[in-house]
Design a binder for these strands. Structure first.
Length: 738
DNA sequence: GGAGACTGCGTTTTT
DNA sequence: CGCAGTCTCC
């Protein structure tokens, strides 16, 4: 009992109520920095320790591998428990586990391969081409979105109504699914849909898992999509308790299918009597929290919640208006120097931006200032081309009939099998409904000889897989495929070669971590037939966990990332940059319903990452897509409480087209006064926006100062470089975007 | 088959 | 502007 008390020590009443809810489903509305992860992990420890559940009766699901790992670590620190016995992981990881265990019922080979986003796109391209469809009419990227969208809504091709316009797409969706089935390949959305279908069709299996899992716990519930919620409902049997934690204000993934409505649906469908709200924030100081609260109140669609802190007000946020993006970066460099001088570690400072394109100029400034930094985002280890190439050979070693990998590996490094030869092979394969590998014999001549040699290589690797350990197999792949030699020869191949060597290390640590015997041949399954072969497990691991972003983790460096990737993290000091209309909120978001509110939540997430210091900035001009764009400050800046923000605004800013002189709202604000902004409607003006650079045949280049009126009376006030300010009717004036 | 020119495009991202 | 993807020519 003493241990129980230790778990619960230091929890506030709401946290304790959530952790110790004895029966019934729970919905926790957990604000940013309110101790959400702690509640989730303590709940699991409490359930097990008080004997309310065995570890095998727990299923906890998160969105990222990182969150799953953290949860496991924290539980492990509280209780001695075998982590394998609990089902803790990502939706995709758990579905993978389910499908590998019940591969026959799911009608899959046990060694089915998982297609990541890139693999899926490649498979779609291949399929579209094979179907003889013009990819102008059916852009593979859009088809990919269509397919994933359908799967995430739980719909197969046959469930989709065949409107004349969509018929082709629906057919291609069906063709794609059949191709995947033939290849034994499963994409990310399929992992979910397939296990959903498995459980919904197979009553015995469903019963089995419903009786086993007495506690389902869901993290980041606001990010679940429709199918994930249905999956949870299916798994939640009569004796099961669902514990969902989420924050509607931090729902920022609607654009990829997240359905915040799941929270309200859950509340209703599971008869939640009382939602537990965690509103005490332990992270940020008063002014920062006040800024976040004030901003988010502008959203109409909220469950409602207000964060408070027992900590003091702290320092006000600082807002900088810079004349250009370069000066914005220079200001940031200065502030960072001050922070460092004041004792803040670089790794405790984050520079956030709305889109990745903004990082370049920041990196440039930091580099020149000699400040070490680390950029998150971009290619991860298992997504790198050279790693994917090596993985393709490994997949062929496991299954030579894998056409995706075959296509990738067959002529890389080049071995004289060009596009013509491949077409012949593909035709032969299609005609006989066999895999590419199985059709090699059908190709005659010189190309046939090259293909036969490739086939011998694959057979040699297969043989190696059955006798040698996984790391030995990886080494053999690098040597025998010619990949190592290829990159050694290439001018800029050194980094790639090092990455390939790192792949051997990755397989070594994988074997050790997963508890495989170091000598086990790569393709040998365990004594227990349910135990995967090291190679199979490694291939799944590579697809499900793309690996870390880049090296240099150990050193103390500034953290640069998009606001999205900052979610879940916290820093002593946070810079939010590029607060300009069109950038943040992003212009593309304005056209979609609810888009602006999502952008605002994004801003909310950004602000709440900061513990002590918050720096906001925007630039009057910014080089974007090769041209200078003049922006006005983000509406989000206006939505911050005056008392919590200190405005810095150098009067000396050299703004070529300063409009403040003629009384418009466009231009540097006054630091002493809260500037009330009169803003015209910004949408529906033939795509023109305030601050946009335009060109007129007679007046030349100018900037849109204001848009007003509507329909045929829609007018733009424009300041031209030479002709001064004019007001033009959009319906009449021949305005071009410049 | 591969280097080099040319075209088009340009949110956010995890699995 | 910078990149990825395609096209062209050797």
């Amino acid at each position: 009992m003493r241990i129980v008390l230790r778990f619960l020590e230091g929890l506030n009443p709401q946290q304790r109520a959530a952790v110790t809810e004895p029966a019934g489903h729970v919905l926790v509305l957990a604000g940013a920095g309110s101790g959400k992860t702690r509640v989730l992990t303590t709940r699991i420890a409490w359930l097990i320790h008080t004997g309310r559940a065995g570890p095998q009766q727990i299923l906890a699901v998160t969105f990222t591998n990182k969150a799953a790992r953290e949860m496991l670590d924290r539980i492990g620190a509280m209780l001695p428990v075998n982590p394998r016995i609990m089902w803790i992981g990502t939706f995709h990881g758990l579905c993978n586990r389910l499908l590998r265990t019940h591969f026959r019922d799911a009608q899959l080979p046990q060694s089915f391969q998982i297609l990541d986003t890139q693999d899926q796109l490649a498979a779609i391209k291949r399929m579209v081409k094979a179907a003889g469809v013009d990819d102008e009419r059916c852009p593979p990227r859009e088809l990919q979105m269509f397919i994933n969208g359908a799967k995430e809504a739980g719909l197969r091709a046959r469930d989709l109504g065949a409107d004349a316009g969509d018929r082709l797409w629906v057919e291609l969706y069906d063709t794609y699914d059949r191709q995947c089935q033939r290849d034994g390949a499963v994409d990310f959305a399929e992992l979910l849909l397939r296990s959903f279908e498995l459980l919904s069709r197979n009553e015995a299996l469903r019963r089995h898992y419903q009786e086993r899992f007495r506690h389902l716990l869901v993290d980041e519930f606001q990010d679940t999509n429709v199918l994930q919620y249905r999956w949870l409902k299916l798994l939640a049997g009569p004796d099961c308790t669902v514990f969902a934690v989420g924050d509607d204000d931090q729902s920022i993934y609607r654009f990829r299918g997240a359905h915040v409505g799941n929270m309200a649906d859950f509340e209703r469908e599971f008869h939640i009597a009382q939602v537990i709200k965690l509103e005490q924030n332990y992270r940020s100081s008063g002014h920062i929290l006040e800024a976040a609260n004030h901003l988010i109140r502008n959203n109409a669609q909220r469950l409602g919640k207000n964060l408070w802190t027992a900590a003091g007000q702290g320092e006000q946020a600082v807002l900088m208006e810079a004349a250009s993006d370069g000066l914005e970066a220079a200001w940031i460099v200065n502030e960072i120097r001050d922070l460092k001088a004041g004792g803040t570690r670089a790794s405790e400072v984050a520079i956030l931006y709305r889109s990745n394109a903004q990082s370049r100029i920041l990196e440039h400034a930091l580099f020149n200032a000699g400040l070490p930094y680390r950029v998150y985002g971009g290619l991860r280890f298992f997504e790198r081309a050279e790693i994917k190439n090596a993985m393709a050979y490994l997949r062929l070693a496991e299954n030579p009939h894998d056409d995706v990998s075959f296509s990738r590996a067959v002529n890389f490094p080049a071995r004289g099998i060009g596009s013509r030869s491949l077409e012949v092979l593909q035709d032969a394969a299609r005609a006989s409904s066999k895999s590419l590998f199985a059709s090699i014999g059908a190709v005659a001549g010189k190309a046939g000889a090259s293909l036969a040699e490739f086939a011998r290589l694959i057979e040699a690797l297969r043989a190696a897989a059955s006798t040698r350990s996984l790391p030995e197999l990886v080494s053999a792949v690098l040597a025998q495929s010619g990949l190592a030699a290829h990159y050694a020869r290439e001018r800029d191949g050194q980094d790639r070669l090092e990455n390939l060597e790192e792949l051997v290390n990755a397989s070594l640590s994988f074997v050790a971590e997963q508890g495989f015997d170091a000598e086990t041949p790569a393709s040998r399954t365990g004594v227990d037939p349910d135990t995967l072969a090291p190679l199979t497990a490694f291939l799944a691991h590579a697809s499900l966990e793309a690996g870390d972003n880049q090296a240099g983790q150990g050193q103390d460096a500034l953290q640069l990332m998009t606001v999205h990737s900052a979610k879940g993290l916290e820093f002593e000091a946070v810079f939010i940059t590029g607060l300009e209309e069109g950038l943040f909120p992003h212009e593309n978001s304005l056209s979609e319903g609810g888009g602006l509110e999502e952008e605002r939540r994004l801003m909310y997430v950004a602000i709440t990452r900061a513990r002590r210091r918050l720096f906001l900035s925007f630039a009057q001009s910014r080089l974007l897509h090769g041209q200078t764009r003049y922006g006005i400050r983000s509406r989000f800046v206006e939505e911050l409480p005056a008392g919590s923000v200190r405005w810095l605004s150098p009067r000396s800013s050299s703004f070529a087209l300063r409009a403040s002189r003629d009384g418009s709202d466009f231009g540097p604000g006054d630091s002493a006064v809260w500037p009330p902004v009169t803003r015209g409607v910004e949408e529906g003006f033939q795509g023109f926006q305030v601050g946009q650079a335009v060109r007129h045949p007679k007046f030349g280049a100018g900037i849109v100062l204001r848009l007003q009126g509507a329909g045929s009376d829609a007018r733009a006030q424009i300041r031209f470089e030479s002709a001064g300010v004019k007001e033009l009717l959009l319906a009449v004036a021949k305005l071009e975007r410049n």
